[in-house]
Amino acid sequence: MPDLQKLYDAVLSGDRNTAVAVTQEAIATGGDPLELISKYMVPAMDEVGRLFECEEYFVPELLLSARAMKGSLELLRPLLAARGAQPVGRVVIGTVKGDLHDIGKNLVASLLEGGGFEVIDFGADVAPEKFIAAVQEKGANIVALSALLTVTMPAMRTTIDALKQAGVRERIKVMVGGAPVTEQFAAEIGADGYSDNASAAVTLARRLTATAVRP
């Protein structure tokens, strides 16, 4: 068994190659995938989140840590699926109709994946109908909406209204974020949660999932 502290360090420092190598070695020597994730990768990402919040880490560091973790997760996911392990939750994510800015959304998607969520990423400029279809057909239990412009923020309200119209609003939790979005706005449009950064979005999704219907 390799020194798994190296996996923690690799995720923390954004070293994808080392994260992948240690994971491969651990798998080859019979390591427990769940233990790798829960004892090393998740704590490493929690530390990344802490460093981000106290402004020692910035967006590039977050992206690199998420990348290292994803590299490792890609190897572990088939093993978990073979055991019948369920994701923490199923999130459908996208920037709202008219908004083409997706860096923040991509980061949130990566960190959610790292946090054990199954993520359906529709990319940018996503129409409400697509979110509805994801809930109806793919069983998503969290809808995550992003907007970078005040011009496109009203589309968040429209999307939530469309989810209500389609009769699926009660089944899911809606979380919103993006530079101009505020907690007050989230409350006004009837979202279930708001996060002002990508790292806190994972904590929020976990909290929302605890009260949501499992996929």
Binding site: G14, R67, D102
Partner: peptide, 14 residues
Amino acid sequence: EDNGRYLHEELTRY
């Protein structure tokens, strides 16, 4: 090299 290229791609894809 590796991380630098990745970051540049991610941050300019918009």
